[in-house]
């Protein structure tokens, strides 16, 4: 195949203990470490492996967001992507509009495969890939743990509630990846230098003429209810007694 498109969303790093702003307007992001959505790193790693096996010619990373997302795209380029596209907007982008943006880029780039994360760990929506596949009228293989390319087809193992589901899809298609697909590589310093010379195209969102979907509005954020403080027991006898007290055994 020729091209693979990979989505890289800039999100609060998964190690950060997220705190809700006291005015309920969102979560604290000032001075907080930002990273590539972990699932997207896996998506990119998979695309790079497909290319390195000789099954693809070019890997393009795409981010939708503010100018700051350039950092994540540069990291993606350092990992090995060939070029990057930033669709720039300072507004929150809802999932359907995001899918329409990817669809527009597909029109321009004609990729054979789009690999996204199964969910972005900020909004935990898990929608973009499925929506993109719907409007592109192409197959979707969500929650993938293995992806085998065979000419114009792909075989995908999906992690589903009852176990594993294996499906075959015709390309082009959208695949969304789960954590067990691979372990992403670390970027090395020389690669970071090299990545500075790779092309990063910035497109203001307005230039793409996307029909914006009506968003679900986020009215108020609050911290989750805390669980009541527990007790520590000394030994197994204490544990069994406490469980009996609560009527659990």
């Amino acid at each position: 195949m020729d091209k693979i498109l990979v989505g890289l969303k800039r999100v609060v790093d998964y190690n950060v203990r997220v705190r809700v702003r006291s005015d309920g307007s969102g979560v604290e992001t000032d001075g907080v470490k930002m990273s590539i959505n972990p699932f997207d790193e896996i998506a990119l790693e998979e695309a790079l492996r497909i290319k390195e096996r000789g099954d693809a010619n070019e890997v393009i990373v795409v981010s939708i967001g503010s100018g700051d997302s350039q950092q994540q795209l540069r990291t993606g380029l350092a990992m090995g992507a060939d070029r990057a596209i930033l669709v720039e907007t300072s507004d929150r982008v809802d999932a359907l509009t995001g899918a329409r943006i990817f669809h527009k880029l597909i029109d321009r780039e004609n990729p054979d495969l789009v690999i996204l994360g199964k969910q972005a760990i900020d909004d935990d929506n898990s929608q973009t890939g499925q929506m993109l596949a719907a409007i592109w009228e192409r197959p979707q293989a969500t929650f993938a743990s293995t992806l085998v390319i065979d000419g114009s087809k792909a075989t995908v193992t999906r992690e589903v509630d009852v176990g594993l589901e294996i499906i075959e899809i015709d390309l082009p298609a959208v695949v969304t990846v789960d954590l067990r697909m691979n372990d992403p590589r670390y970027v090395k310093l020389p690669d970071i230098m090299k990545a500075k010379k790779k092309p990063l195209e910035q497109i203001p969102l307005a230039e793409l003429n996307i029909e914006k979907a009506v968003a679900i509005s986020q009215v108020k954020f609050e911290p989750p209810t805390e669980r009541a403080k527990g007790v520590m027991v000394e030994d197994v006898a204490g544990l069994v007694a406490t469980l009996k007290d609560k009527g659990l055994i």
């Binding site: 809802d94 359907l96 899918a99 898990s126 929506m131 719907a134 409007i135 009506v214």
Partner: peptide, 23 residues
């Protein structure tokens, strides 16, 4: 919000031209 629903419902939403409320 099982893997069945999470796979299916966003596809339904997009075909109807709307966003989805997840979870």
């Amino acid at each position: 919000s099982t893997t069945f629903g999470r796979d299916l419902m966003p596809r339904v939403a997009a075909l109807l031209g709307v966003n989805q409320v997840s979870d």
